[in-house]
Simulated scan of single mutants.
Amino acid sequence: MTIYQRIAALLLTMSLSIPAFAMSLDEAKNALDSAKSQGLLGETPSGYLAPVTPDTRARDIAEAINDARREAYTGIAQKNGIAVSKVEAVAGQKAVEKTPAGQYIEMDGRWVKK
């Protein structure tokens, strides 16, 4: 193997090991309302967002927002000495209630336009 082939192989190996850059929380927040109004994302009773249809951008937005929500729910649960699942359920109920007409919510495992 020549030096050039070794360098090429090393560069290829390095590029495959670099993780994809996740969407920042600010980017996700800025894109959230639009994605929800386009029907790409919906609120679930679990307190988290989920893609309504398979869409990479919607998945990335949900992941960034859900990570922040999970962190907040954990902090609230620890502060109040309750289970995270209780905080998630209350947050989910409030999010579903606050979802405007025309946007999606998950009910009984199905997406429903509110």
Rank of each mutant, 00 (worst) to 15 (best):
T2K: 08
T2E: 11
I3E: 11
Y4R: 12
Y4K: 09
Q5M: 10
Q5T: 10
R6V: 14
I7K: 12
A8T: 04
A9C: 09
A9R: 12
L12N: 11
T13K: 13
M14F: 09
S15E: 15
S15M: 14
L16N: 15
F21M: 15
A22E: 10
L25T: 10
D26P: 00
D26W: 01
K29S: 08
K29T: 04
K29G: 00
N30S: 11
L32F: 07
D33C: 00
A35T: 02
L41C: 02
T44Y: 03
S46N: 13
S46V: 02
G47V: 07
G47P: 05
L49M: 03
A50D: 07
A50W: 01
P51S: 08
P51F: 05
V52G: 04
P54H: 11
D55N: 15
R57L: 12
A58N: 11
A58S: 03
R59E: 15
D60A: 15
A62E: 06
A64C: 02
A64R: 08
I65T: 03
I65F: 07
I65G: 06
N66P: 01
A68Y: 05
A68E: 12
A68W: 10
R69M: 03
R69K: 13
R69S: 05
R69N: 06
Y73A: 06
T74S: 15
N80E: 15
A83K: 13
V87K: 11
V90N: 08
A91D: 03
Q93V: 01
Q93M: 08
E97M: 08
E97R: 10
K98M: 10
T99E: 00
T99D: 00
P100A: 08
G102I: 01
Q103E: 06
E106T: 01
D108H: 11
G109A: 12
R110F: 07
K114E: 00
K114C: 01
